[in-house]
Simulated scan of single mutants.
Amino acid sequence: MSVSHHIVHSQIGRLFILSAPSGAGKTTITNQLRNFGVVRVSVSHTTRLPREGEKNGCQYFFVNRDEFLCMRDSGDFLEWAEVFGNLYGTARSWVETQLAGGTDVLLEIDVQGALQVKKHMPEAELIFVRPPSLNVLEKRLRARGQDKEKSITLRLAAARDELLQASQYDYVIINDDLERAVAEITAVIAGK
């Protein structure tokens, strides 16, 4: 009598990281990917105040600085960064649970955080969304009406630095047409 053994291989999810300078369209792209069900989007923790229409647990988990620092010091974050005076972090346990369950996960984080995650999880695939030009980026920042002049100046300076880091990414997508940019990122996630 022979007994056959079947080995069950569970599919591990893939980790994608989407970064872009402020105003380049990463949040809009991420929302479209979320709405299309292309990938599960991680919700980061932040100390910044919610913008109009944002709800706790949807776009971010909004926490105060002391709560954030306690989580950071406990090793709860896969990555964290301070950006324009606010703290942002990605919960390690949530990401690891999703990946272990076979779910593809997208982190929408800045360049600094992306490179932190890549060190810990080299299998992560990095996607950088760049604006067609810095002039277009400046127009977008001004058009959205969320930032004061000083903030726009800081964001443009940061964008110049972030654009220099794009070469460290696996994919660079130019967002000169939103629909095309979303399609290109969807193809990357689908493995095409």
Rank of each mutant, 00 (worst) to 15 (best):
D73A: 11
A159S: 06
R130C: 10
Y169N: 03
Q32L: 12
G101A: 15
G89I: 05
L115P: 06
K55M: 07
L156M: 15
V8N: 09
P122W: 03
S74A: 15
D177G: 02
E67I: 11
L107V: 03
T97L: 12
P50K: 08
L164G: 08
D147V: 04
G57N: 07
Y88M: 08
L115F: 11
D110R: 09
T27I: 01
K150R: 14
V188R: 04
L164C: 09
F36W: 09
W94T: 14
A159Q: 05
A157L: 11
E54S: 05
N31M: 07
L99D: 10
V41Y: 05
Q146P: 00
R142Q: 12
A190W: 09
H45L: 07
F16R: 07
S74D: 12
R14V: 01
T27F: 00
K118R: 15
R72M: 08
T28S: 15
R160C: 10
D66N: 12
G145E: 14
E162R: 08
H9I: 11
Y171K: 13
A114F: 03
V8S: 10
N175A: 09
E79C: 15
G57F: 02
P122Q: 08
E138T: 06
D147C: 02
R155I: 06
A114Y: 00
G145V: 00
A158N: 11
N64F: 04
L154Q: 13
F128V: 03
S22Y: 02
Q165T: 10
E54P: 05
N86H: 14
N86P: 00
F68V: 08
F16H: 04
A158P: 01
R144Q: 12
L178M: 12
S93T: 10
T97N: 15
K118H: 11
S167P: 00
E184C: 08
T186N: 01
R65C: 03
V129L: 13
C70I: 01
P21W: 08
K55G: 02
D66K: 11
S93N: 13
A24Y: 08
I152M: 05
P131Y: 04
E67Q: 14
I152C: 06
P132Y: 01
P122D: 10
Y171A: 06
T28V: 12
N56S: 10
V172T: 15
E179Q: 12
Q59F: 01
T30Y: 02
G13R: 10
I29P: 02
R51P: 01
L18F: 05
A100C: 07
E82S: 06
E108L: 01
A183Y: 01
N35A: 15
S151V: 12
R155G: 03
G191L: 09
V83R: 09
V38P: 00
G85V: 05
E162A: 14
E54W: 02
D170T: 02
M121G: 00
S42H: 14
Q112I: 07
N35T: 09
K148S: 11
Y171S: 10
Q116T: 10
L87S: 09
D76Q: 13
L115A: 03
D170R: 04
V43Y: 03
D110S: 12
D104I: 08
S4I: 13
S19R: 04
W80V: 02
I152G: 06
L154D: 14
A157D: 12
S74V: 00
T30H: 00
V188M: 04
L141A: 05
K148Y: 02
I152P: 03
H45I: 01
G13N: 09
N135T: 13
A20Q: 07
